[in-house]
Amino acid sequence: MNNPYFDLLMWARGPGFDIALIIFAAGMVIRVVEILVLGRKSDKAPAKGSPVGQGIRTVFSRSIPRKGLINYAPVTYLGGYIFHLGFFIALFFFGPHLSLFDSIFGFSHWWPEALSFQWPSFGRVIIESATALAILALIALMYSRLTDPVRRAISTFDDYLVWLLCVLPLASGYVAVNKLFGDPTLMLALHILSVELLMIAFPFTKLTHAVTFVLSRYYNGAIQGRKGAES
């Protein structure tokens, strides 16, 4: 006798994850390698500032909004911050997720002692608040996307799809941990499957920015930095 929920969970943890990982890893490597190999011409103008230093700085500094802009698009800024922070907290600080990262990267198995760091996990209050806030932020962002003329004009299918794919893991994770409804095994399976959908969509959608933002911010900082201008 089989438990169909367990079969689904095992498919999600087994072949489902393998498929998602292959598409995610290969796809993202393709995207990044394509950019790097395309390359750019060396700049012949003598630098006034420090292109490399400012490029690296900008990768971080661009996370801080420029003064004044927040008033024009409060939902985008606040929603964006809350969503990203909430998502990261839930993703990187929930104990079971830490096991996942440990297992994938093998911190506690293969890494030298000194490098086998593992960060602590957060308690339920923080994880669930972060998840709930991230979902609320996503709802606010979608409201803004549907009602704001600029965001509506530039939105494509990609934007709506990615929104849905971000909501599903958050919502299903929340439901699974809290046993809000449904069989716990089924909800866990659905949660993992929703993450796999997100992974599969990664290289083909704007989700790519999660990796390529490092490159784009670096180039921005390097271009401006060469001229000694702010970035």
């Binding site: 995207r31 939105s155 920015h209 390529t212 490159l215 271009i223």
Partner: peptide, 13 residues
């Protein structure tokens, strides 16, 4: 070039 490719890859509209 690479910067252009990275910019379009990163846009989140």
């Amino acid at each position: 070039d690479a910067p252009v490719a990275s910019f379009f890859s990163s846009c989140v509209s």
